[in-house]
Write a protein that binds this DNA or RNA. Structure first.
Lengths: 355, 355
DNA sequence: CCCTTTATATAAAACGTGTTACAACTCCAA
DNA sequence: TTGGAGTTGTAACACGTTTTATATAAAGGG
């Protein structure tokens, strides 16, 4: 017990103390602990001594000193609209797998679709010296940061941004041919909010596929989530089915001449179903409803949701992989856009079109 | 344009360059920019020159150097089981408000209820030099870190942890008197998973309140989320109503002699309702269901959920406030436990007990 | 015997701040 | 003249790493 200084718990032991204790120089200790290539010449015996002492004294290199020297933080910034379960959570489950495997942590910044925050957060995180950015579902055409950027579902046109996107054409094809084969011809569409990048690409795919399968698009049957007396500015709660309830209600007040509706996401679909039910219509008896995303509770609603599943976890994983590669090798050529495949999940909310 | 060095974009301008440009010492510049008390003697004219140049040259103090010197990171670690919308997202909306106001960012670490991660993450984040910890819904009795800790819904017994908890007695009282006044006498309970701290406290409150209102608790009507052929180890998806579906199913196979069930959370309630429906029972016609949390979609289910609302955002806000105070003043006395009030929200899933 | 190589290790610089102690200069009264 | 007090600043260190360049002794080659 009488080990002198060592028996008293060292507030924190740093490299200098460790070196003094070992009667070696800081250089030697540092080289050994970092497995530096120039440490090859150090004999095994010395290395063992160093490692053993580091463990015994519970040496932890100071994060700031190390980062200052190496100018990298081992952390990335994640920019997202919100912390929704429908999107954020599932993408992040993939992201986290990759990041922790590489000893990376992440800062989250939610911009809530506010323009100033979308511009401010990247700057603030650059000041925090993040090594890279992950953009989730966030418009990013003029992002200008000195580190690699990977965008998921952002369709960024920026020069140095790697895009990870869903194959919207395939997604829409699956949904519409499903409805078409059930006999639906008058199909309504609930488009996504203008702010969300996917909205535009989804809609373009809808127009294209409609033409391909010879389906007529009636402008009167096209509604938007961010209209009908509600907009993103009123405070967008990604998990509030209200976003689908109100537009659906508005459409029903104008016309009931349709037999199906394709919603921008599952939450909106839930709201839409509630609105239909409140109007005395049955789903799928009178109206079939298709959602998007396949959130975890989609199978448990009444009726359970037919929906297009996005491989969000895989998209997150892939995005993080690419980002880490680009961080590790800053000079590597920019990988091209990465396109992921959707999957239609058929449940109770769709059925044959009524006569 | 021919300004010499200044016309070429400075890769990054640091204090030395700024000082050279101003023909002042780094000390002076630093003192001015930090509004240091010992800068009182510096004349206003000089200060203005410094500030103006700093803005013009877009000077940003190096985060690592500054943190190394001041040994604080302006970031906190958030430890949570997962990124669920029911809990995490809502608490964090309050937390973020406070943190960003104080120029703090946060690292998120999800332990997925794995013992090793619950122990490892605090250590890893301490190495990252976080200035404090926020524990969400996470058992933390033996957390040992050199920085302040605030626990939300964790009921920690640790000496240096500030607890923020819901008033479970009041919550249970509201729910049970509601059911009781509707005529329910045989009430089933779906208890939370053993791993979640609230589970135990909720159950204790249930036993106490039952006694107070003279309600008999039948052990045969008490089921747990983490039993009935399903456990946390199978992979806990906080938004998967499956967690409520299976236990409900198991109970129904044994008995139907009850008229109401009080579920641990809304997600479980959704699963339970689905199981009841799949067994040919109607909600609330045959069975009334009460949830907990009041998640955003609770009002949009069919039937919409009667539930006990937790003021999660407020709890997050309060927790972050306390944490920031404790960080700013490390010697201040530990504030006592903070108790928040719940609110019963009555919707469609509860009704009069059948005869 | 001299010169090079190898093995083992180290001193010192660098990263960019914040801060402590002190220097020069002026003014003013004793 | 001198000493004290204010004014306006600066030199130098500390924070804890990583890395570059270098030192010393022993071994080996001619």
């Amino acid at each position: 017990m009488a080990k002198g200084k060592l028996s008293t718990p060292p507030g924190h032991v740093n490299l200098r103390m460790l070196a003094e204790h070992l009667e070696l120089s800081q250089t030697t200790v540092s080289l050994v602990l970092n497995n530096s290539p120039s440490a090859k010449s150090i004999p095994q015996e010395t290395r063992d001594r160093v490692v053993e002492a580091a463990n015994r004294l519970n040496y932890r290199p100071n994060y700031f000193a190390r980062s200052l020297r190496q100018s990298r933080s081992m952390s990335v910034g994640v920019l997202a609209p919100d912390l929704s379960e429908g999107y954020f959570t599932r993408v992040m489950s993939g992201v986290v797998q990759e990041l922790t495997g590489a000893h990376y942590f992440y800062f989250t910044a939610c911009h809530d679709w506010k323009k100033d925050l979308i511009e401010k957060y990247p700057r603030m995180l650059v000041e925090r010296a993040v090594d890279g950015f992950l953009l989730l579902n966030t418009p990013s055409d003029n992002i200008d940061v000195p580190v690699p950027v990977v965008a998921i579902s952002a369709h960024s046109a920026s020069e140095n941004v790697t895009n990870i996107v869903l194959d919207h054409h395939q997604a829409v094809q699956q949904a519409l041919t499903h409805l078409y084969s059930l006999g639906h011809r008058r199909i309504a569409f609930m488009r996504g909010p203008r702010a969300i990048p996917d909205s535009e690409f989804r809609w373009e795919a809808i127009q294209q596929v409609a033409q391909e399968i010879n389906l007529k698009l009636d402008p009167a049957l096209s509604i938007r989530i961010d209209s009908a007396g509600w907009s993103m500015k009123d405070g967008y709660h990604p998990m509030a089915p209200e976003i689908g309830y109100k537009p659906m209600q508005a459409l029903l007040e104008k016309t009931r001449d349709f037999t199906a509706i394709f919603c921008f996401n599952d939450i909106a679909a839930v709201g839409a179903i509630r609105a239909l039910r409140d109007s005395g219509l049955s789903v799928p008896g009178d109206i079939s409803v298709v959602g998007f995303d396949d959130i975890l509770s989609a199978a448990y609603y009444t009726p359970s949701l037919t929906t297009v599943r996005q491989p969000l976890m895989e998209m997150g994983k892939r995005g993080a992989q690419v980002l880490l590669e680009r961080i590790a090798n800053r000079e590597a050529p920019l990988p091209p856009e990465i396109i992921m495949a959707p999957e239609l999940v058929i449940r109770e909310s769709t059925g044959p079109a009524p006569q």
